[in-house]
Structures are given as structure tokens and as C-alpha cells.
Computed example of a mutant assay.
Amino acid sequence: MEQHVYEVAFLPDPIRVPEMRRAATAFLRRSGISGPVVDDVALAATELVTNAIRHGDGAVHLCVSAVGGELRVSVTDQSPDRAEVRHADVEEVSGRGLFLVAAFAHSWGSSGQETWCTFRYPLGDDGAVAA
């Protein structure tokens, strides 16, 4: 079974968010994954990284992996606080990130330092990424 992994650690600076989105997208395309799931993973990476930068502590670590038809996006920081879905008021301009991740992802969770989500992608009969 093929496994593809992209990992990067960086200091918590909002300027890194679009870079991480582009890196996650490029990783998926290099891994042969295409279609709507690429946009969903890019959105999730953006939201989880933004959350870690805004609410976390210390360096941020992004890991995107693809194995066996499952994509996993994981973001860790040094904060022991678990990420929780907020229900932002209509007039609020932020606070919907985890709500979006929960809506688009197959599953998601937070253990405190790590917040993660998973997505499914199609495999061919040989177990490789379906084109």
C-alpha cells in the first residue's frame, strides 16, 4: 500500500497560512490525488493551521498523509486546550473554521495539542490512487 506524507514545522505567523494551503495542495497533486477532495483538504489545512496560530502556543506542525484511500490532516501546537466547534453569530467575521472542517471532513477530533481530520479518496483495483 502506497503511503505519501508531507510534514512541516514553522513558527506561528499568519503569513504562513496561504503557504501551508499551497503546500498541502501541491503535495496532493504530486501524490496523484485530484478532484474536489483536494479543495476540501486545502480548506481543512487552512482552518486547522489558522486555529493553531490564533489559539495555540509555540511552533506549529502540519502533517498531511495519504494512505489506503484516506487523507489525514493533522496540526499540532503546544497548547493543551482541545479545539472545539463554535457557533459564530451571523455578524461575526471569524469563528467558523472548525465548523467547516467538521462539515467537509469524514471525521475530525482534537486531543489538545493535536487537531486532525480525515477525508476519503478513491483507489483503483490495484490499491493505487485512482486517476
Rank of each mutant, 00 (worst) to 15 (best):
A44T: 10
G109N: 08
D39F: 11
T118G: 01
H55S: 06
T118R: 08
R96H: 14
H4Q: 13
E114S: 06
E19W: 12
D77Q: 07
V67Q: 15
V93H: 11
A130V: 00
D126T: 11
L100K: 10
A131P: 09
G58E: 04
S34L: 08
V41L: 04
S74C: 12
E70H: 10
H61E: 12
D13N: 13
S74F: 00
P36F: 06
A26W: 10
Q3V: 13
G69C: 07
L48C: 04
W116K: 08
D40A: 15
H61F: 06
G112C: 04
R96D: 09
A88N: 07
V8N: 07
C117K: 01
E7T: 15
V90N: 04
S94R: 14
R21K: 14
S34D: 14
G109V: 04
F119M: 03
D40G: 09
L123Q: 05
S110V: 00
E7N: 09
D89N: 13
R96G: 06
V85R: 08
P122I: 01
A102V: 00
S34T: 13
V101G: 01
Q113S: 09
F104Q: 06
F119P: 02
W116D: 01
M1V: 08
R120M: 00
G97D: 07
T76A: 12
V90P: 03
E47P: 08
M20P: 01
R96S: 06
A44F: 05
E92R: 14
E70Y: 06
R72F: 01
A24R: 05
A9G: 14
L71V: 02
N51D: 14
S94M: 09
Q3G: 11
S34R: 15
A52L: 02
C117M: 02
S74T: 11
V17T: 09
D77R: 05
D57T: 14
I33R: 05
D40E: 15
G56D: 03
G35S: 09
I33F: 08
E7C: 08
E70W: 11
I53R: 04
W116F: 10
E92F: 04
A105V: 06
R120T: 10
H4V: 00
E84T: 14
R96L: 13
R30V: 00
L11Y: 12
G95C: 05
R16M: 14
V93W: 12
W116L: 02
V64Q: 06
F119W: 05
V41A: 04
S31F: 06
T25W: 06
V90L: 15
P80L: 09
L71F: 07
S65D: 11
I53H: 05
S79M: 01
G35K: 10
G112Y: 02
A83I: 05
F10M: 08
R30W: 05
S74D: 10
V37I: 12
F104C: 05
H61R: 15
E70M: 12
T46P: 02
D39V: 09
V93Q: 12
R22N: 11
